[in-house]
């Protein structure tokens, strides 16, 4: 812990602050000096993958020391540390304190989080902190499109991203987003990422928030059928179809037998594979029993 260490961290912090994109890549150091980061065109920052350990250790030793506890110093230290280790709860809590005291500007902090989410699209703590920040902000100042764009991007970056879909559910409720528009957005997103079961589970959640009627379900089943024609080999589509059938049986008073037989006929029109067989087996079980074992 020397003055040069401190100036290294402040330098890193200010580069992180002004850059629009951060990546970790291996950079080669030589005998004379160690390369910590590399910047191009003032907005692309590359941090050295080999120096993560040393920087993290340095940050920790400063944060838990007695001397560097002023608000602006803590701001610098936690910014660097969180860039390297996003799951460090202590640092997030320090930043929460800094936000409450007014040291950190909320809009700027949202931008910082945006950049970090590109780096760690599945970080639970990051999303949790972002939710907290949004609660501090005036609800009029929150950009709905920005939040939805972040959800789309992180979900695409990391397959079946639980943290991201959970955040999206929260956003839908908190900002009171129209369910029909959201269903349409979800459909477009799924067109390009149709193996993502989390997105289908989110879609089922959206449906369950609406007043279900036969038309909606029929429309969904038709949509799913059209996708199955093209991609009969994707498990996510079959699982979603199964969810739809369960939703129908649970919430709508229709002729169960007729529905299940119709489904069985439909399955026969597809080429047989592991998933279609599994689905057909399930339909047969539902037909022969009252389906009690599947309720709830």
């Amino acid at each position: 812990m020397s003055l040069t260490d401190w100036s290294l961290l402040s330098l890193l912090s200010s580069s992180i602050e002004q850059c629009k994109s951060i990546e970790f890549m291996p950079l080669t150091s030589n005998d004379e000096y160690i390369v910590y980061c590399y910047c191009e065109e003032n907005i692309y920052l590359c941090l050295n993958l080999f120096e993560i350990k040393s920087i993290v250790k340095l940050c920790y030793s400063f944060i838990f020391s007695k001397d560097y506890q002023e608000y602006n110093q803590l701001n610098i230290l936690t910014r660097v540390l969180l860039c390297y280790v996003t799951e460090c709860l202590t640092s997030w809590n320090i930043r929460r304190r800094l936000v409450l005291s007014g040291t950190i500007n909320i809009q700027k902090e949202l931008q910082f989080l945006d950049i970090l989410l590109n780096l760690k699209p599945k970080s639970e703590q990051l999303f949790r902190y972002r939710r907290w920040i949004l609660k501090q902000e005036n609800i009029q100042k929150i950009s709905i499109n920005k939040e939805l764009e972040i959800c789309d991007r992180t979900a695409e970056k990391h397959f079946i991203n639980y943290a991201s879909w959970l955040y999206r559910r929260w956003i839908i409720n908190y900002l009171n987003i129209n369910i029909d528009e959201e269903l349409e957005r979800n459909r477009l997103w799924l067109e390009k990422n149709l193996s993502d079961s989390s997105a289908f589970s989110f879609r089922a959640y959206l449906l369950s928030k609406k007043n279900l009627n036969e038309n909606i379900i029929e429309h969904e089943l038709k949509l799913n059928e059209n996708m199955l024609k093209f991609y009969y080999d994707r498990e996510s589509l079959w699982i979603y179809r199964q969810t739809l059938i369960f939703l129908t049986i649970k919430f709508l008073s229709i002729d169960k037998k007729q529905l299940l037989n119709k489904e069985l006929d439909l399955v026969k029109t597809f080429e047989e594979n592991f998933f279609s067989n599994k689905y057909a087996r399930l339909l047969n079980i539902l037909l022969s029993s009252d389906g009690k074992q599947f309720r709830n």
Partner: peptide, 10 residues
């Protein structure tokens, strides 16, 4: 496009 600025080169 889906890769980062530096990653693309690799």
């Amino acid at each position: 496009e889906s890769f980062g600025y530096f990653e693309r080169r690799g």
